[in-house]
């Protein structure tokens, strides 16, 4: 899956007379765009983004599932690639030969669940799910409860969220200290009601998503002041309909996901103007070649494509598969997880 930007430009339209109000999601073109990403290995950027490859597969695959084309990528090749990224320690690197990291291990688990390959894992390798889960659990800091990204100890609430996300998919939450992780998240709550990547770090919509996501997974959203946080989150919508991630920053399609999913978890999705946001996201798609960009006029990429599509799914845009705001995966798949049956 190439992380190469472009060639399309968000906001380009094929028929000159189309009015913004009539913009619709060009599902087939987005599917073709994502399928085409893998044939771009002759571009230097393909190789310069190798350190993101496994994330890229997750983004592309998830977008395809939400667009209702789950079989648009060959399952066997996807599985083969994911397994080739796994290292001796049980974790996954961004690409074969890269060191294990939480970011890629999380993507690997999400991909495996999405293509229904968790059982293949048990058959194809020793240790199966538990080997991955032990790698993740080993990254929890026993004193603070948070998680590091790798053996080098960088901590971030992103890693904590990914740990909970992956471990709940693997049904291995018992391997970690949930209570201390939850206290750590609470320590990240700021004076403005939001959350940052570490205690005292500035409130950021992306980090709010990770903290709320982690709390949702362990059913502890009761710890959050939903009204205050919902007010901060809904204040992210600007008059052009788009959302930003922090006060006084630019709007960006990816916040259609981080802000919106957070509002959905709090049950406050209706506090923003959905119609205006839909128009904003659609104004960022290249309706000729497919793909969505961060804002109108910029180059499209797979990252903004998946989060734009996921945002539209949350807003109930017709023709899309329902997304789970906690996992950014098709809801049908997450609802069937053994962890959520308990």
């Amino acid at each position: 899956m190439a992380l190469v930007a472009g060639p399309g430009i968000g906001g380009s339209r094929s028929s000159a007379g189309t009015l913004p109000a009539e913009l619709t999601l060009v599902i087939d073109k987005h599917v073709k765009y994502i399928q085409g990403l893998d044939s771009r290995k002759d571009e230097l950027d393909y190789w310069l983004t190798e350190h993101l490859r496994l994330n890229g597969v997750y983004w592309g695959l998830t977008a395809l599932h939400l667009l209702g084309h789950p079989d648009a990528l060959p399952r066997d090749k996807t599985l083969e690639f994911v397994l080739a990224c796994q290292n001796q320690d049980g974790g996954f690197g961004a690409a074969p030969g890269h060191d294990s990291h939480m970011l890629y291990t999380g993507s690997a688990v999400q991909i495996l669940a999405t293509i229904d390959a968790l059982t293949d894992l048990e058959v194809s390798q020793t240790g199966g799910k538990e080997r991955i889960a032990r790698y993740i659990a080993g990254l929890q800091d026993p004193t603070t409860g948070t998680f590091a990204g790798d053996e080098w100890g960088e901590t971030d609430t992103r890693f904590l969220y990914i740990a909970f996300n992956a471990l709940s998919i693997l049904d291995m939450m018992h391997l970690v200290n949930v209570e201390s992780a939850v206290s750590y998240i609470q320590a990240c709550a700021n004076f403005d009601g939001g959350f940052g990547r570490a205690p005292s770090a500035e409130t950021h919509a992306g980090q709010i998503f990770t903290c709320l996501g982690a709390l949702s997974i362990v059913r502890r959203l009761d710890l959050v002041d939903a009204e205050r946080l919902g007010a901060w989150l809904s204040d992210r919508q600007l008059s052009n309909g788009g959302l930003n991630g922090r006060p006084e920053k630019l709007v960006d399609v990816c916040y259609s996901w981080w802000v919106l999913s957070s509002l959905a978890m709090l049950g406050k999705l209706h506090w923003i103007d959905a119609a205006k946001l839909i128009t904003f996201i659609l104004s960022c798609q290249d309706s000729e070649h497919g793909g969505i960009s961060d804002m109108p006029g910029d180059m499209v990429d797979v990252f903004h494509t998946v989060f734009g599509v996921a945002g539209l799914s949350l807003l109930g845009y017709p023709g899309l598969v329902e997304v789970d705001p906690v996992y950014c995966m098709p809801k049908k798949i997450t609802q069937a997880l053994p962890y959520h049956q308990a």
Binding site: S183, Q186, A187, A189, F191, E202, E248
Partner: peptide, 27 residues
């Protein structure tokens, strides 16, 4: 906003963190 957040950290947040670490619990 980043600078405002840092101002809170300098005036109050650093002490709050120390207390959180010493006593456990949250802010």
């Amino acid at each position: 906003n980043s600078a405002w957040n840092h101002r809170y950290f300098v005036c109050f947040g650093a002490d709050e963190l120390k207390a959180i670490e010493a006593e456990g619990g949250n802010r």
